[in-house]
Every structure is written in C-alpha cells, then in structure tokens.
Nucleic acid binder design. Structure first.
Lengths: 208, 208
DNA sequence: TCTCTACGGTCATCA
DNA sequence: TCTCTACGGTCATCA
C-alpha cells in the first residue's frame, strides 16, 4: 500500500489484497500495461485502488471487516502450511544456505543439520521412473561448497542410485535484471561450474 | 469396495477412491445410467473398476502407492478440518441434538453445553444485512424441545435482534425415501409446528 | 509483487 | 455414496 501504486494495482495483487474473486474484479474497469516479465505476454491489468476499496466494502461491510477477512485467510494459510506432509521417501526437497553435515536421521536420511533445513514442497504423485535423476535447481548459493541444498541433493541421489544434476537459471527478463547483476551471476556460475565439474557433477546454466 | 458395484463406479466416487482428476478419468469409457437423484438431471457415469485400477497403477506406480496417496489425502483433510476458524461473532452455526442451557460464554455467547456442540461451518464473507433473519435448517431433531440447535439459533437471533425462522426440508426424491418414512417425518413436523408456533416461531416445511 | 491454467478440496445448487 | 459449478489456495508454465 505504498505511494508507487498510483498507476493502479495489478490484478493478482489486487485480488489478494482485497479478498476479491475473479468474478468480483471482472465488473471493474482496468487499464492495461505491458507485462513487465514479457512484453509479448498477456498484458498486466491495473485496477484503481478506489474502486477496489469500494467493492471490498460492499462485499465485506467495511474496511475493518476486510482486514479481519485478510487476517483469517492469512492464518488459515499458515496453519495449513504447518500440516504439510513431512519428509517421505521419494520427494522433492529444497534447502536453504550454509550448514555442516552430521549424523544421518530418519526420513530423507539426512543429518539433522540438513534435515531441519529441508522442506518437502510437493509429494509427487508418480513414483520416480527408473533412470531418473535428481535435479538441484540452484537459485541461491551459487557455489559447490558450503551449500547444504547441494549436500541434500547429493545424498538423495546416492540413496536412489540416481544421477545428480545441477541447473541454474539466469533470468534476463525479470524486472530488476541489469548488466551488472547478470555479470556477477555469470562469474559466480563459472566458478561453481569448475568446482562441481571437478566433483563429477554437471552444472547446466539455463538462460530462458 | 463391495459386491454391489458390478455395474460400475460413479464418477465422483471413482475420482476420490482412485485419486484421479477429471482429466485422468476423461480418457476412460463410461456407461451412463439414470441419475438416482433426479431422472431428468445429468446422467450418472459409471466406470469400470478394472480400468480405474489400471489407470491408477499407471499414475501412482502400484496399488500400494495409491493406498499411500489416499492416506495422505485423508490425513491432510483431517488436519485442515482441525484448523477451521473457531467461533466468531457473526457466523452461521449448526448444532447437534439434545442438551441443556447453562451459563453464557464467549464467542457466540452460548452456554458451554451448547457451544461445545456448535461448529462454525462457514464464516460468511458478507456482514448480515439489516433486517436479516436467523434461519435454523432443521434436518434432524424435528421438535421444539430438547433441541440444542434450536436453542443456539434462538440465542443467536436474540443477540442480533433478528427474527428466528425454522425451515425443514422434506426430501421426496432421495434414494431411500418411501411413503412410510415420509409419513413419519410429516407427522413429526406437524407436532413441531404446533409447538414452535406456540412460542411464536414459524416452522416452514419445504418440499423441494 | 505478471498472467494463465491445472489441480485438490470444499460446497451449494440443480436436475 | 448423483453431477455441476464456483470458490479459495497453490503451483508450474508461458509469454
């Protein structure tokens, strides 16, 4: 809710902020702007804060009631997130930065210091096909050392007897990309590629 | 999974039992039967157990994996149900049978013996309009006494300064309806209508 | 802080 | 143990 929104509020954000459905929002007028992620993609729809507020007040009774509803949804999201399935045997794992290895534990068979950083994002419906690989999608910590996500992926691959591959996306068309940042990322990836290569792991750099 | 399913398994049930999506099930052949709830409504689609099993095995790997997936979903449902919003000030309430009134408590302002039987089914997005009424949808306990759901509705109406109305549906076209049962229900409703009428509450009998 | 679709899950409504 | 739709919420994908 900052000053920078004077052009209007993008649809996705507007729906969440004002607890509105697609149907609700359809009745409002929208101005279109170029999609910042892809100029050729579907246009960004901008809605007027004033109209959104008026609609939300009509729907919920008052801005206070709207705020209550937002709280309710927020809490619901949080508590549902807590009930997510715990570690299970075949699962996609995702970890955060820097930690050391310790004793193996249950679940993914990860040492505690790793496993407490691992969160199962999705339990895949399909069992992994024979010959499948474990893919570590490296978005942060672009390095082959001090990288617990990499350690977790390595373990998982070993457990399955699968190949480990590492892929790093380099986003050129995200809003804040610029030459300086891209250069920094590419230099980091070059070093990581050398380091991983020495350990027999391919690092694939993906420029979408 | 009983013997009575030799005609085939209805779509809704099939999807749940075999963890399949509409898309999945679309690829299968279905035989149509008259909709037992309404002969003029959309037909009931019956799928062959054998085909469903084959598809589920293809999707999940084995019947054991399917069973695991079903367990997962079941548990998820249960734990999400537990995180449902608690009693709040304007809410639709629903209660079960026989109890006595006691001291008022927080939330809906119900006595403990009532409030522990009340479950908030849905927190309405809209604030109740002025002049709205509290509707007690009487599906069980067709009587004006020993009826805690009625007591809860009465309290809620008093708290809001709203009218209380009671409505009872008499379902004629549900699969197990027959003359004897309908007669029993109607007799009960006649008595309840007299009892509630004496207390100034309308009981509306609805035959859909 | 981009949009669209598909997916579970839930629910009210309808025939 | 009926079917369809709408609704949140989540997510991967695409442009």
């Amino acid at each position: 809710m900052s000053k920078s929104r004077k052009d209007g509020i993008p649809k996705t954000y507007a729906k969440i902020q004002f607890c509105l459905s697609d149907r609700d929002v359809e009745s409002l007028t929208a101005t279109e702007k170029k999609n910042p992620y892809s100029p050729k993609g579907p246009a960004m729809k901008l809605y007027k804060r004033e109209e959104l507020e008026r609609l939300a007040v009509r729907k919920f009774g008052s801005l206070e009631k709207l705020e209550e509803e937002r709280q309710r949804r927020q809490e619901r999201r949080n508590s549902v997130a807590k009930t997510r399935p715990e570690l299970d045997s075949f699962s996609v794992a995702k970890a955060a930065s820097h930690a050391e290895a310790g004793d193996p534990d249950a679940g993914l068979g990860l040492p505690p210091l790793l496993s407490e950083r691992v969160r199962v994002v999705r339990s895949p419906a399909r069992e992994p096909a024979p010959g499948s690989l474990v893919l570590y999608w490296m978005k942060a910590a672009l390095r082959g050392h001090h990288n617990p996500a990499l350690d977790a992926a390595r373990r998982e691959a070993a457990k399955r007897g699968a190949e480990l591959a590492v892929a790093a996306p380099v986003l050129l068309d995200c809003p804040h990309a610029n030459a300086r940042r891209v250069k920094f990322v590419l230099e980091g990836l070059r070093d990581a590629q050398r380091e991983l290569g020495a350990a027999g792991v391919d690092l694939l750099v993906h420029v979408p």
